[in-house]
Design a binder for these strands. Structure first.
Length: 752
DNA sequence: CAATTGGGTTTTTTT
DNA sequence: AACCCAATTG
């Protein structure tokens, strides 16, 4: 037997060796999916003789692409594989569109707008159309446009479909698209939509790409959207050599347009599909697997598969409770210290998961306090920082001086006296003459329309820009940046007060950006700066290449595809996880998706899983409120926990909203009283509150009243405020701290 | 024109 | 608490 197949189980081997025709691999968590994919590509190449250049593999993230490439290299014993086409749908489409720019109605040097740029552009459009942001929320508009593009709908299509909405989304969409076209820019969704339209409208071009890629593989297929589904079909329907890999239980991107039905109904779109299920788990202990299976079995949207393992029972799960975020951080940090120092665990093998980035705060504080090295994965993205965005826009403008969006962003950065008024004149002029901002600005300086500082500054800026454009034609990206930094004096004038901490961190980021562009290794032979900018737009991951072992902090979404020996999942509270939006919507599918997210979190752990609940989170508007436990906690069989955890759970679960039915094996609990509100108020001698849904203010609180806070100690009321039902009190504590509370939630009592 | 202040709003998740 | 916008002030 080929050495390639030696380390695979029989089912995996089938998946690797299946040759022609559509193949669907349902890969359960930890079932060796990546191993199968990489071996399959290696097999196609080495054993079947398919040239690597004829294989296209689509991954969900750039990181996954990089990893896949490396692993295949290792298997094949090659240093590099320039021919193999691996990347996200977005990256592949960007490549295709650059090659086929003309046919797609673009110029080769088109810019790619990230989400932030897109929002800025939308805001500009709203201003131009004189629509208030209150009426048309930029975020809503953005989502409308993206949803439309995913379904390949033009503004005109939207106009026809929807007319009952009072917000003129289609009109905004139309104008937005106009702006993008004028700026020679595309957004993320355009990358997909324009490629699909190109293939649909030009059979010759489509054939060319189909012939180029004889074998197509799509990973994380459960998270593809409609446009991606169409793309898959357009690329593979001729030869049918399509292999998709997915797991319906790990579909967690419906909010981005992902449709599980793409996976569930794959056989319909590709008749004759061979289906393989990978169900043996090689990752987690039997206990963790049992916890995961019990949870996911509640879902209805499943193909259905049963994971099994030949591994050991392993350690039970631990459930932790804390009064607040700081306490939660401390407990987890202490446990990390114990694992690292006593058990000798490598910090790289520990991860802390949460539902949203804002939850990382308390953990970060504790990690610093305990001097545990950590890294936050994702989070505020590097390229989203103001200074990095500025520099990126300056670079974009140098490649493509008609990019009005970039021009607008940087024409007055650093401040050179071209303020809102002057910019408005430029914009109007540009619109009237039907030219770009840059050309309009040139005309304005010639006509001497602007007076004073603005006039001179603009001439100066335009002069510098000409220099950068010239430079960008041939020079290395780092050289262009160097010139830009020098000309604009950005490091002195662009970072604010030079002695501030902020300026320090900005300069640090600029330094890091310089490092990135310096060490950038171009792949192709085309315009290097353009290539750099494309990568920056599509790949947000900033990789610090120090190899220091660290504990990882990341969202569960970010954790997809990763695994760790020890996993902590924090924020196991109602309203947090599952998010209140899902639980409060009347969409059962929304909760199912949250449950899949929980399933993903559980199945990342190899050896041990910790779940953490905090009674309160730092949200001033809800200070003192007591969180109810997450419904997911009650969906776990109690005997997967250790004894103490079971006790903690028993004490806590009475606070949970009653559930009608309980499946056997679940924790039993007796609610000692009904709970009416989502946030459960504390009882206190201030009087009964929040009866039967109606909220009355608590008597006895007025200015000067002596009070006692359950956690913060004694103090005095300094002021009262808020709306009826949401009365607030500001308390000055005896130790000098001041804090405002929502009266009905605060654990405050009147002092004797 | 720009910096400051005040008010209102927000909290998923990412290519 | 943090962020973003609009209005006000220097």
């Amino acid at each position: 037997m080929s050495e390639l197949l030696a380390h695979l189980n029989p089912v995996q081997r089938q998946a690797v060796t299946h040759l022609d025709g559509p193949l669907m691999i349902i890969a359960g968590a930890g079932s060796g999916k990546t191993r199968v994919i990489t071996h399959r590509i290696a097999f196609l190449h080495r054993e079947v003789g398919i040239p690597l250049g004829q294989i296209m593999a689509v991954t969900f993230t750039n990181k996954a692409a990089k990893e896949m490439r490396e692993r295949i290299c290792r298997i094949l014993g090659l240093p590099d594989m320039p021919g193999l086409a691996v990347g996200t749908f977005h990256a592949r489409c960007a490549m295709i569109l650059r090659r086929e720019a003309e046919a797609a109605g673009l110029s080769t040097s088109f810019a790619i707008l990230d989400e932030t740029d897109q929002k800025q552009a939308i805001k500009g459009v709203l201003k131009e159309l004189d629509i208030s942001e209150k009426l048309a929320r930029p975020a809503k508009v953005q989502s409308f446009i993206n949803q439309a593009k995913m379904r390949l709908l033009t503004p005109a299509d939207c106009e026809e479909l929807n007319d009952e909405d009072e917000v003129p989304y289609p009109r905004i969409y139309a104008k937005y698209q106009e702006v993008l076209t004028k700026c020679n820019s595309v957004d993320f969704e355009d990358l997909l939509m324009k490629t699909v339209l190109l293939f649909q409208g030009n059979e010759a071009i489509r054939k060319r790409w189909v012939e180029r890629y004889q074998y197509v593989l799509v990973d994380e297929y459960q998270d593809t959207n409609h446009a991606q589904f169409l793309l898959t079909k357009l690329l593979a329907k001729d030869h049918g050599n399509i292999c998709i890999v997915g797991d319906e239980d790990q579909s967690i991107y419906s909010w981005r347009g992902a449709e599980i039905s793409n996976l569930l109904e794959f056989e319909k779109s590709f008749p004759g599909t061979h289906v393989i299920k990978l169900e043996q788990n090689y990752r987690s202990t039997a206990t963790i697997l049992r916890a995961a299976s019990t949870v996911i079995e509640r879902n209805t949207q499943r193909i259905g598969k049963t994971l099994f393992t030949e591994g050991e029972e392993g350690e039970p799960l631990t459930f932790m409770t804390s009064p607040d975020q700081a306490g939660e951080g401390t407990r987890i940090a202490q446990e990390c210290v114990r694992l690292i120092k006593v058990e000798g665990v490598n910090p790289d093998e520990i991860a802390i998961f949460y539902r949203g980035h804002w939850l990382s705060r308390g953990i970060e504080d504790a990690m610093r306090q305990f001097r545990i090295p950590y890294r936050v994965v994702g989070g505020l993205r590097f390229y989203d920082r103001r200074e990095v965005k500025d520099l990126l826009s300056l670079l974009r403008l140098s490649v493509n001086p008609t990019d009005d969006l970039a021009f607008e962003r940087v024409v007055n950065v650093p401040n050179r006296g071209i303020g809102a008024k002057s910019q408005l004149i430029i914009a109007q002029h540009a619109a009237a003459m039907g030219v770009s901002w840059r050309e309009a600005a040139i005309a304005l300086t010639e006509q001497k329309t602007l007076r004073g500082k603005a006039h001179g500054s603009l001439i100066n800026f335009l002069g510098m820009l000409d220099g950068w454009v010239e430079l960008a034609r041939f020079a290395k990206p780092s050289r262009v940046l160097e010139q830009i930094l020098k000309d604009t004096n950005y490091k002195e004038d662009g970072v604010g007060d030079l002695n501030s901490i902020e300026a320090e961190s900005r300069l640090e980021n600029i330094g890091e950006f310089e490092g990135m562009i310096d060490s950038y290794q171009p792949q192709g032979t085309e315009n290097q700066l353009l290539e750099f900018l494309t990568e920056m737009a599509l790949d947000a991951t900033e990789e610090k290449d120090d190899n220091k072992a660290r504990v990882s902090l990341l969202t569960i979404h970010n954790a997809k595809g990763l695994e760790y020996d020890y996993v902590f999942t924090i924020g196991m509270e109602k309203g947090v996880f599952p998010t209140s939006r899902a639980e409060e919507s009347f969409d059962a599918m929304a909760v199912e998706e949250e449950r899949r997210l929980f399933y993903v979190a559980i199945t990342r752990a190899r050896k041990k899983l910790f779940l953490s609940y905090s009674m309160s989170r730092n949200r001033p508007d809800l200070w003192g409120s007591m969180n109810q436990p997450s419904i997911f906690l009650s969906e776990l069989p109690s005997d997967v926990f250790d004894g103490e955890s079971q006790q903690r759970m028993k004490r806590l679960l009475p606070y949970q909203t009653q559930r009608q039915k309980q499946a056997p094996g679940e924790l039993e609990y007796v609610p000692d009283e009904p709970v009416q509100t989502e946030r459960r108020p504390f009882r206190s001698p201030g009087g009964p509150i929040n009866r039967g849904g109606r909220t009355a203010s608590r008597p006895g609180f007025s200015e000067g009243t002596r009070v006692n806070h359950r956690y913060m100690g004694p103090g005095e009321v300094v002021s009262l405020g808020g709306r009826p039902g949401w009365e607030r009190v500001k308390v000055r504590f005896d130790d000098g701290r001041e804090q405002e509370f929502v009266l009905k939630y605060a654990p405050l009592s009147l002092a004797e």
